[in-house]
Each structure stands twice: as C-alpha cells, then as structure tokens.
Amino acid sequence: MGRVKIAVLDTGCDISHPQFLANVGRIKGRKTWVPMKSETDVSDSFGHGTHVIGLLLDIAPDSDIYIAQVTEDKSVSPSVAAEAVLHAIREWDVDIITMSFGFAREQQEQETEPPEISLTDAILEAHRSRVLLFAAASNTGAYGLRPSFPARYTGVMCIYSGDGHGNSAATNPTSRQNDYNFLTLGEAVESAWPVQLGGPGVHKKRKSGTSFATPIAAGLAACLMLDTRRLLSREDARRLNE
C-alpha cells in the first residue's frame, strides 16, 4: 500500500524554511492559483499555510504533501477553492484534502458570474472519489450561529478547536447537528513560520483557532488510514474500493 497523500489548500509554504528543507522529498506537488505567479511558485508571504503544512509534516510523518496555494492572505474565492479541490482529486489523486478557511455562503457576492463548477460540485466529486475532506468550523464564536461553508456541508469533517484537555475554545461557532463534528487541539499550537516574517532566528510561532485544529485532525486521519492499509490484506482493500 502507498503512502497517504494530503492536499493542503492554503496560502502556500516557505520552502526555504529548515523544516521543509529537511522534508523536501515529501513535498510531491505544488500549484498556485494566485495571479501573476509561475504555476509552481507557492511562496508564502502570509504565514498561515506554512504553519498548517508544518503541523502536517510533524503529525503524519509517513504522508506526502501537495501544496495548493489558493490565496496570499485571508481572502479565498470559492470558485478558486473548487478548482483546487478538483485538481487535487484529478491530477494528484490525493486521499485527504484539508481546508483551513470558510465562507458565510458558497458563492461570494463579488463573484458576479456563476463559476464553471461550484465548490459544492467539487465536494460531491470528492465524495464520489472517496477523498476525505477536512474544513475549519470558523472562529466566530456563538455569534456565528453555525460553522462556515464548506465545514457545515454534509460529509465534510467539521473541525473545532480545543485546548488539549477536552475543552472547547471560546471562539468556536455553535456545533451543527450531524455526525461530522470533531474537536482537536487548536489553541497555542506551535509550528513553522516563514523565515522572512519571523525575524532573526525565529522559525516557529504559536497560533490558535480552527484553522490549526484542522490540519491536526487531517494528520491524525492520515495516520489511521495508513495503519488501516497496512493491516488490511490486498483482498480486503480491493473489496473496500469496489
């Protein structure tokens, strides 16, 4: 059985960071949807994606990472996210997709024309392809009333932030009533930070929120998936995929 393949939809990654230089063989794919950049330039000037991918490298050491840069800051377009999800499924053939972002509604108001394919359609294709999707619930607190999209969509693993002792973070939105709510560590989590943003000798930073709980949950799932593959016989694995 092959290694678990994880696509990360985020702000890219600082490939020059010591942690990534030490794991460069595990970065199997790179693609940016940011305009005016070369297709494989996923350099991260914001830090969010570097932190997220650093967590995955630590938590799921036997996984391969595919970097999909869908934004350079906090503003992600649902249509771009949809394109990245489809690319991860069709071109990279990933097992898991992690998305540390969310929207109040599927289509943003500034997208005046309907996209060629919606994020909902892309999620449905992921389900048909048996790809696991993880998304951040958001950090709106109880005022948010419900998790963001796509975390609230049926079949997407909706990830909430906890303090490591089973306590829910105050910034978590109200949980939805279905079987896909999960809470894991997301408070004061230390991980990689871009060298150019951290100052001399500062290569790590602590961050909190569902954005950082999400890759931890995805990494744990990747470990379970790999162990399951190792335990299953080839015949059992074939039946599961039928």
Rank of each mutant, 00 (worst) to 15 (best):
M1Y: 05
R3Y: 09
R3H: 15
V8I: 07
C13A: 14
D14V: 08
I15N: 07
I15K: 06
I15T: 12
P18Y: 02
Q19N: 04
F20P: 01
A22D: 14
G25Y: 03
R26N: 10
G29V: 00
R30A: 05
K31D: 00
W33G: 00
K37L: 12
T40Y: 01
S43V: 13
S43C: 12
S45A: 06
F46S: 06
H48T: 07
T50Q: 09
V52T: 05
I59F: 02
D62I: 00
S63C: 06
S63V: 09
I65S: 03
I65D: 06
I65P: 05
A68H: 01
V70D: 05
T71C: 06
D73C: 12
D73R: 09
S75N: 04
S77R: 10
V80T: 12
V80R: 00
A81H: 00
A82P: 02
H87S: 10
A88F: 02
R90C: 04
R90K: 05
E91F: 07
W92M: 08
D93R: 08
D95F: 10
S100F: 00
F103Y: 15
Q110S: 15
E111Y: 10
T112S: 14
E113A: 13
E116T: 13
E116Y: 10
I117D: 11
I117E: 14
S118H: 11
L119D: 09
T120A: 15
T120Q: 11
S129W: 00
L132G: 09
L133V: 14
F134C: 02
A136H: 02
A136Q: 07
S138R: 00
N139P: 00
T140I: 08
A142R: 11
Y143F: 15
F149P: 11
P150N: 09
R152Q: 06
Y153G: 02
M157F: 11
I159M: 09
Y160G: 07
Y160A: 04
S161N: 04
S161K: 08
G162N: 07
G162T: 04
G164N: 12
G166H: 03
G166K: 01
A170H: 02
P173W: 12
P173I: 02
R176V: 14
N181E: 14
N181Q: 14
L183D: 15
L183P: 01
T184Q: 02
T184C: 14
L185M: 01
L185V: 08
E190K: 09
Q196S: 13
P200Q: 11
P200H: 13
P200S: 14
G201L: 12
H203S: 07
K207W: 13
A213N: 03
P215I: 03
P215V: 05
G219V: 02
L220C: 10
C223G: 11
R229Y: 11
R229V: 13
R230F: 10
L231N: 15
S233I: 05
R234Y: 04
A237W: 10
L240T: 10
L240V: 14
L240H: 07
N241I: 11
